[in-house]
Amino acid sequence: MTPLLLASTSRYRRELLARLGLPLDTARPDVDETPAPGEAPRALAVRLAQAKAAEVAARHPGRWTLGSDQVAELNGAPLGKPGTVAAAQAQLAAMSGQSVAFHTAICLIRDGEIHQACDLTEVRFRTLG
């Protein structure tokens, strides 16, 4: 059986898929993750999952390739990766007592055949001190 090709180098995603017991390879997708102006968080997650899968699949024809992305949404706006401790603290302060939506998209591609899904998880943050 040809291993599934994960379009990600995320250790976390690899470990999640390893639980299925399927053979798995990984490849780093070369995708610009910058949101388009006015792009909704769900649309961003779906677009990035497909872009990652398509970019890697183009380099590995005949392989089932899985792309994934998750975008957090607070008050209608996407939350990016904070990058610094100060930015992480600011994000946590903004999420305190709020509901945050997490849009998790996946895209499975092989030779032009595409299967996609997007899941929504809503998390209510307690008031943080």
Score class of each variant (00 low, 15 high):
76 G>W: 04
69 D>Q: 09
79 L>G: 02
85 V>A: 14
55 E>S: 13
50 Q>N: 12
63 R>P: 00
26 T>A: 14
83 G>F: 06
90 A>Y: 07
70 Q>K: 11
77 A>M: 13
25 D>T: 11
41 P>S: 02
54 A>G: 01
88 A>F: 08
64 W>V: 06
71 V>S: 10
60 H>D: 08
36 A>V: 11
87 A>N: 12
70 Q>G: 06
60 H>G: 05
39 E>Q: 11
56 V>Y: 03
65 T>P: 01
32 D>G: 00
26 T>I: 14
27 A>D: 11
84 T>R: 00
74 L>C: 04
30 D>Y: 02
87 A>E: 15
37 P>G: 07
29 P>N: 09
51 A>R: 14
89 Q>C: 03
85 V>S: 08
72 A>K: 02
53 A>N: 08
26 T>Q: 15
53 A>V: 04
47 R>H: 02
83 G>K: 07
47 R>P: 09
59 R>L: 13
83 G>P: 00
89 Q>L: 12
71 V>H: 05
28 R>V: 14
78 P>T: 12
79 L>V: 08
56 V>A: 01
74 L>T: 04
54 A>P: 01
56 V>R: 00
72 A>T: 05
88 A>L: 14
83 G>T: 01
33 E>A: 07
36 A>P: 01
44 L>G: 09
50 Q>I: 11
64 W>M: 10
69 D>K: 08
49 A>C: 06
59 R>Y: 05
78 P>R: 10
66 L>K: 02
35 P>E: 09
50 Q>A: 15
52 K>R: 11
66 L>A: 02
35 P>K: 11
58 A>V: 10
36 A>F: 12
70 Q>L: 13
48 L>Q: 09
82 P>R: 08
47 R>Q: 10
88 A>T: 13
39 E>P: 06
39 E>Y: 00
62 G>S: 06
46 V>C: 14
35 P>R: 07
49 A>G: 04
40 A>Y: 06
72 A>L: 15
25 D>I: 00
34 T>R: 14
47 R>Y: 09
47 R>C: 11
39 E>K: 04
63 R>Q: 03
28 R>C: 11
79 L>C: 00
68 S>F: 09
46 V>G: 00
45 A>K: 02
88 A>E: 13
45 A>G: 10
57 A>N: 01
65 T>S: 07
44 L>T: 12
51 A>K: 05
32 D>R: 04
38 G>F: 09
85 V>N: 05
37 P>F: 05
43 A>S: 14
30 D>T: 10
48 L>F: 08
34 T>Q: 10
87 A>Q: 13
65 T>R: 06
45 A>C: 08
89 Q>I: 03
58 A>Q: 14
85 V>T: 13
59 R>F: 05
